[in-house]
């Protein structure tokens, strides 16, 4: 009843042209096929690289080569962080691969704490790989399982489109503070990958957005550009990133503001494309 009333109000208002947020039925499902297919290729490429990198990373861990493992940690994660917008589609593997200590009741001591961050803890805090041999095996197995599953995985358009916004929400809520890679402080690598991954979705959808709402598209592009320019200031000589602690207070606030704005704007993307 209430819903119907709201729906009618929407139709009336929509007909009256009160919205700047595009015409909602303008995008047909067919128009989404190509961008979603392209996105699936993007994900597949990243998972392939993730599998290769994780093999090398876990081999270093198992060999007890702490220095090498530390060097490989952040770059290996990059391909995973790029596909995080759709991590919801494999949430069991996501929590196995990328959960943090505070997702577990006993934190670092919790036997269920595994994946990248458990190894990160071993490398940077425990300075020993003794406890994480099995964790490394499990991480590689989970990544390979992800690769296998991907072949048959359906990408619902609303999950992909919504995923860009969801990732911005996550960055705003639990990443911008530098809490994700709290032992290694390699958060800027993750930020770069997260923004690239979210931006990929926006880029693929751009032709559909621009049609009805160029200003939205321009504003979003400008915000991503600010983010990438800000992060570029922290590139290290070897092509990586400085530690999170180097991030100035001012740039942290700037990034936080842009992330909030992107989250706010991208939260309208599904509706703009007529998706549920």
């Amino acid at each position: 009843m209430h819903f119907r009333r709201r729906f009618l109000a929407t139709l009336v208002a929509g007909a009256a042209g009160l919205y700047t947020a595009a015409s909602f039925a303008a995008v047909s499902p067919l128009e989404l096929v190509a961008p979603i297919a392209d996105y699936k290729i993007y994900v597949a490429e990243n998972v392939r690289k993730l599998a290769t990198d994780t093999r090398a990373f876990t081999a270093a861990v198992k060999a007890g080569d702490i220095e090498k493992a530390k060097k490989l940690y952040a770059p290996t994660r990059t391909s995973y962080e790029k596909i995080e917008p759709i991590a919801e589609l494999f949430s069991d593997l996501d929590s196995a691969i990328d959960s943090r200590a505070d997702d577990h009741e006993k934190a670092e001591k919790d036997p269920a704490f595994g994946g990248f961050h458990r190894i990160e803890y071993a490398l940077w805090v425990q300075k020993s790989t003794k406890e994480v041999n099995k964790t490394a095996d499990k991480l590689l197995a989970d990544v390979l399982e992800l690769q296998k599953r991907l072949v048959a995985l359906t990408f619902p358009p609303e999950k992909v489109v919504g995923g860009a916004a969801v990732l911005m929400e996550e960055v705003a809520a639990t990443k911008i503070s530098g809490e994700e890679n709290r032992y290694s402080h390699t958060d800027l690598w993750d930020f770069q990958a997260n923004f690239e991954g979210a931006y990929k979705i926006v880029e693929l959808l751009r032709p559909l957005i621009v049609k009805d709402n160029k200003s939205f598209s321009d504003k979003t592009d400008a915000n991503f550009k600010t983010v990438f320019d800000t992060l570029a200031k922290y590139r290290s000589a070897d092509g990586g990133f400085d530690t999170y602690s180097k991030l100035s207070e001012r740039d942290r606030k700037l990034l936080a503001g842009r992330v909030n704005t992107l989250a706010e704007d991208l939260s309208k993307l599904r509706g703009m494309l007529g998706l549920n």
Partner: peptide
């Protein structure tokens, strides 16, 4: 204001 339910 009432907005389209597909929007926040």
């Amino acid at each position: 204001p009432d907005l389209d339910p597909k929007l926040p």
